[in-house]
Computed example of a mutant assay.
Amino acid sequence: MKITRTSTLAGVSIAALLALAACGDNAREVAPADAAATDTYGMAPAPAASGTVVAVAQGNPDFSTLVSAVTAADLAGTLNGGGPFTVFAPTNAAFEKIPAATRGSLMAPAGKADLTRILTYHVVPGRVDAATLTQQIQAGGGSAALTTAEGSILTARVGADGAVTLTDEKGGVSRVIQADVPASNGVIHAIDTVAMPN
């Protein structure tokens, strides 16, 4: 999917990362300018700004793994806060790319610190909707450095196909497959791969 460049600010929150949410009627896919926004990824719809980023994520079955991870890391309280947050929310399919043994160890009590670090790496303080992110990328000469709640950088770019990608500190690339899912305390962008900090 591609991120549609819109001029409307919808909440984009990731201040408590992984409490990401449902894609809905007010969600916009990231696509080239002037492209029609249609959900071809099959994300479940959700009401606009009907709750916090955590509540929105809880209402979308495509984020059930993320919600479980946020709960295991004790981040729900933070992500239910005032924000605003921009959350780059990995879908269940994104988590499936991580080996099962690794996922299991992260979800165990002994993996809580690592899980928290990974989840907060997906949260950017403030509201960064698709239009704002695209402007930041253009202003940065083709890339934008996003400082996450974890303290490290995600690098955003627009690919040749118009899709926004995020490059993590290990060189992994995730793609925004649905943008501008609104929440009362931020905005969520669904991504297809879990980003990993150094």
Rank of each mutant, 00 (worst) to 15 (best):
Ile153Cys: 09
Gly151Arg: 06
Leu75Lys: 10
Arg103Tyr: 04
Pro90Val: 06
Leu106Gly: 10
Thr91Gln: 09
Tyr41Val: 15
Leu18Asn: 05
Thr120Cys: 06
Thr155Asp: 06
Val158Glu: 14
Ser105Cys: 03
Val12Leu: 11
Ala15Gly: 11
Thr120Lys: 11
Thr65Trp: 12
Ala179Trp: 01
Leu166Lys: 06
Pro47Asn: 12
Pro90Tyr: 00
Lys112Ile: 01
Ala89Phe: 07
Gly77Ser: 07
Ser13Gln: 11
Cys23Trp: 03
Gln58Lys: 11
Arg28Tyr: 14
Thr193Ile: 03
Thr165Arg: 12
Met1Gly: 06
Ala15Tyr: 04
Ala100Arg: 09
Asp39Glu: 14
Val173Asp: 01
Asp74Arg: 11
Gly126Glu: 12
Gln178Thr: 08
Ala10Asp: 13
Gln136Pro: 05
Asp25Tyr: 12
Met196Leu: 11
Asp34Lys: 13
Asn80Leu: 12
Leu154Pro: 00
Gly82Tyr: 15
Gly126Ile: 03
Ala31Gln: 13
Val67Glu: 00
Met107His: 00
Ala27Met: 10
Ala48Gln: 10
Gly77Cys: 04
Thr116His: 02
Val124Cys: 06
Leu75Phe: 05
Ile14Asn: 13
Thr132Ala: 13
Ala139Leu: 02
Ala100Tyr: 02
Lys97Met: 07
Ala69Ser: 03
Ala149Gly: 08
Ile137Leu: 00
Thr71Pro: 00
Gly171Ile: 07
Thr102Leu: 12
Val56Thr: 15
Glu96Tyr: 08
Ala156Asn: 02
Ser105Trp: 03
Ile137Trp: 05
Gln138Gly: 05
Ala156Lys: 05
Ala48Phe: 04
Val158His: 09
Tyr41Asp: 03
Met43His: 15
Val56Phe: 08
Asp39Phe: 10
Asn185Phe: 00
Phe63Tyr: 15
Val158Trp: 11
Met196Tyr: 07
Pro45Met: 08
Gly142Ala: 04
Leu20Ala: 14
Ala144Cys: 04
Ala160Leu: 08
Gly51Leu: 08
Ala72Gly: 03
Gln135Pro: 02
Asn60Glu: 09
Arg28Phe: 14
Ala31Leu: 13
Ala44Val: 15
Gln135Trp: 00
Cys23Gly: 12
Ile137Met: 03
Ser13Thr: 11
Ala35Ile: 01
Ala49Thr: 01
Ser13Lys: 08
Thr78Trp: 09
Ser174Asp: 00
Arg175Asn: 04
Asp168Val: 05
Asn80Cys: 07
Phe88Asn: 02
Ala100Trp: 00
Asp74Tyr: 09
Ala160Asp: 12
Ala94Thr: 01
Val56Lys: 15
Gln136Ser: 11
Ile3Gly: 07
Ala131Arg: 02
Met43Asp: 10
Ala19Val: 10
Lys170Arg: 15
